Simulated scan of single mutants.
Amino acid sequence: MILACFCFGIMGVFVKLGSKQFSISELVFYRCIAGLIGIFFAVLLQGKTLKVSFPVFKLHMTRCAAGFIALLLYFYAIVHLALPTAVTLSYTSPLFLTLISIFYLKNNPRPGQVAAILIGFVGVVILLKPTLESSQWLAGLMGLGSGLLSGVAYFNVNKLGQAGEPEWRTVFYFSLVSTLGAALLMALQDAPLTMLNFNNLWIVVGLGVSATIAQLGMTRAYSRGKTLAVASLAYLTVLFATLFAALLWDEQLSWPSYIAMSLIAACGILSSALKKSDYKNASG
């Protein structure tokens, strides 16, 4: 998970660097196609099947749609905000996942869940108000929307896991739909497509490789490790993003912003600690 967080931070750096030459849809396309190619060859070599029942296929498509739009919004936030701020707003997904779980399972929220929601909400308010200028509020809302839709995507990932779907098939369908969706947006964009050359190829390669390693590392961590420990380590992405932003662009945040990041991380860790027991109670 530490490797995954480091690579997610690197991915954010490449998104910010690439935004000077590529559109957001192009960046999403290159981010997703690398993982799609890699997992497609793994499927062929191991003789695995992509066939699923229609109800499970609908779950896959819901997860893919939410995840794809969340990725577009996340990249938009990275391009227009300080890297640590964009990453932190995207990591509000556990806050929204808790809310979605409460409404979907139709249970009265437990005190711990209420505490997590309040902590996360306070963190979001503190992070947005002192950090963003008036011209950056749209990007801030995009980052928050990324967290919301990521929560929807993760909720569907949980349901896919309960249906017995392997992680590799979930990642494959997400990569496929996101690649096709980004390709469609590239075809519809007004600006001409950016041609690859020796001056920008390294950005595309770095983006694809870092994103793929991060995705594989995260998937392995969640499948082999303890959920709470892995979810807690996930917030190292914010730390790495902060370090990279300071070193490369001299981006400095205020102390209230760091306090807000800590509150959002605490919300995520507490939500992860409570989530497993919620699904146990629902299945029982």
Rank of each mutant, 00 (worst) to 15 (best):
L3V: 13
L3E: 04
A4P: 00
I10H: 04
K16H: 10
K20N: 14
K20L: 11
F22I: 11
F22W: 13
S23I: 03
I24Q: 03
I24Y: 06
C32L: 08
C32Y: 02
A34R: 02
I37F: 11
A42S: 12
V43H: 04
V43Q: 06
S53H: 14
V56W: 07
F57H: 14
L59V: 05
H60C: 10
M61T: 11
A66T: 05
A66V: 06
L71D: 00
F75K: 01
Y76C: 05
L89T: 06
Y91S: 10
S93K: 06
F96H: 02
L99Q: 06
I102P: 05
Y104W: 15
P109Y: 04
V114S: 09
A115D: 06
A116H: 02
I119L: 11
G120W: 00
F121A: 10
F121W: 03
V122E: 02
V125C: 08
L127A: 15
L128Y: 13
P130T: 13
T131D: 07
L132W: 08
S135E: 13
W137M: 10
L138H: 14
L138S: 14
G140K: 05
G145Q: 07
S146Y: 04
G147C: 07
L149G: 03
L149I: 08
S150L: 14
G151R: 00
F155K: 03
F155H: 04
N158Q: 15
N158R: 15
Q162D: 10
Q162A: 10
A163D: 10
G164W: 10
P166K: 11
E167D: 14
E167L: 06
F172A: 00
S175Y: 11
S178Y: 00
L180I: 14
G181Y: 05
A182K: 06
A183Y: 08
L188V: 14
P192H: 12
P192A: 09
T194Q: 09
W202L: 12
I203M: 09
I203T: 09
L207Q: 01
L207E: 02
V209C: 05
L216W: 02
G217T: 03
G217F: 01
A221D: 01
S223H: 13
R224F: 09
K226D: 13
K226R: 14
T227C: 08
A231W: 00
L233E: 06
L233N: 07
T237Y: 09
L239N: 04
A241L: 15
T242W: 09
F244A: 01
L248I: 15
W249N: 12
E251H: 15
E251S: 13
Q252A: 06
S257G: 00
A260L: 02
M261L: 05
I264V: 09
I264T: 01
I264W: 01
A265H: 00
G268N: 07
S272N: 06
K275F: 15
K275C: 11
K276I: 15
K280D: 12
K280A: 12
N281Y: 10
